[in-house]
Every structure is written in C-alpha cells, then in structure tokens.
Amino acid sequence: MRERTLLLGEQRGMVGVLTEPSAEVGAVDRPLVVLLNAGLLPRIGPYRLWVRLARQLAAEGFAVLRFDLSGIGDSEPRQDALGFEEAALDDIRQVLDQMARSRGVRRFVLMGLCSGADNSYLAALRDDRIVGIVLMDGYAYRTPGFYLRYFGRRLLRRRSWYSLGRLALEQVRARLPRVLGPAPMNPSVRPVPDYVRAFPPRAQVAAGLRSLAARGVHIYVIYTSGMDGHYNHRTQFLRAFRDVDFRGHLTLDYFAESDHTFTELRSQRALVEAVVAWTRRAFPAHIAVRSAEPQVRSG
C-alpha cells in the first residue's frame, strides 16, 4: 500500500490523497473507490474513518481516492456562485474526469455519509462511469411500519406525549413549502448546521434508483440509529421503495447500535468490515477483465 497527494480539479484547487494497493494485490481494471466529504468534515472522514477504510480497501486490491470538495477541508473555494449541491457534483465530475485522463480509470465506486451519500447518489445518476455507490445515512422515507415502531417504542415512556407532539410538528413542517425549512434530522441533538439537508420527493428518488438498477449499478445502503427520526428498521428502505426492482444489486444494512458518525470504535470496526466485504463481493477480481467491462460513454 502506498499513498500520495494529488491536486485535483480544473483549477487544481482540491486536495486529495490516493491510496494504491501494492503490486501483489492490485487487480487490473478494478473500479477506483472515491470517498466523499461527510458534510463539512475534512476528507479523513468522521474520526479518520475514511483513512482506515481506504487502507483496508487497498489491502483488498482497490485504489481509493479521498479528497476535499471545494471550500471544505484543505481545498480552495470555488470562484463561481454554484449552490452546494451543484458545486459538489461539478467538483466530482472534474475529479473523475482527471482520474480517467491521468490513470485510465473507467469505473468508479462512490461512497459517502450524509451529504456524501446524497452526492454519491446524485453523481451516479449523471455519470455512467459510476458502477457502485455506498450510501450511509442517505435519503430516508418514513413508512407505516416506521410510525408503528416509532410510537410503539415510545408510548410507554414518560416523555411519550412530548415526542408525539414533536413528530407531529415535524410532519406539519415537512409538508409546508420550505417556509419553515425542512424537518431537522435529529432536532433534539444538534443545532441545524449551515448546510441544510433536504430529501427530494420519494417518487423522484424511486425513479432515480430504477435508472441505476437498470444500469446495473451496485448499491449498498446503510442506515444508523442516528437517523431514527426517519429510519428505524433494516428493511424500511425496501418498504419505502417497493415500486423499485433493484435487480439483485441492492444490499441493505442497519447499524442499530451506531450513531450517525460512528463515534464508538466498535461501530467503526463494524462499518469498515461491512463496506470492505461488500466492495470485495460486488467487484471481485475475476470480473475485472476488459471483455466484461460495461461500455463507457464517450464525449
């Protein structure tokens, strides 16, 4: 395993670190894994988790790039006025283009937590070179089962009526057109950061997931209990997207004992182990031959 620094993007203002496998384990044409910023956290990830993940994936034969989007971590801010999401997607496109040009990479797997999950999904919709995504605490949609579990667990608690009122208030807010802003992810814990996260309409995401499944994109969806205001069961994702045929490309996990940023070391170990195992399964060395490659869109 070896690591080197890169200056990325058309202005070379984004800082990245490329972790490459040693020659013995490095398989030709395996996709490049790209780790995205989680919110405003620098590229090392929450608690340096992306560094550990990158190095363990490299031990499995994957090259891994972690980098800072413009204005985050060590990267220079952009000079244009693009919004957070459009700027992030353009940054990702520039980085992928650069890795394709300079290293001949033809396939990418994007991984991210929170806004990093959202950016992974949105980038995959736009870019056929992205053949896998790992979405950690990505968009979540409540189902009838969610409400049953949510209220079932709370009705016997002393503060149940407070919680009920809070959720009801959230529901009202969520239905109001942005006047009050989107429902906060976990309103009792943290103040709302500058970056405000909004989930697109479920039907829109369902259509997006259908298009990714049709392209054969491998999708690994992970939720933690840090999303328990929106997600509280391992299979809720499947229930929320019953109208999507994932064609066997979906893997789902629920880290019930972990918070949103995997603060405890045991949660970190479990996450890294799970993501490495999924990546190894989804992109085994033996399919990484040129004849099995998908067509790369030109232009």
Binding site: E257, D259, T261
Partner: peptide, 10 residues
C-alpha cells in the same frame, strides 16, 4: 456527553 446525546438510551 457526546455519546449520551448521540446514543441516548442505548
């Protein structure tokens, strides 16, 4: 404090 905030009852 962080764990109490993040993990609550757990």
């Amino acid at each position: 404090q962080l764990l109490l905030e993040e993990l609550g009852d757990r």
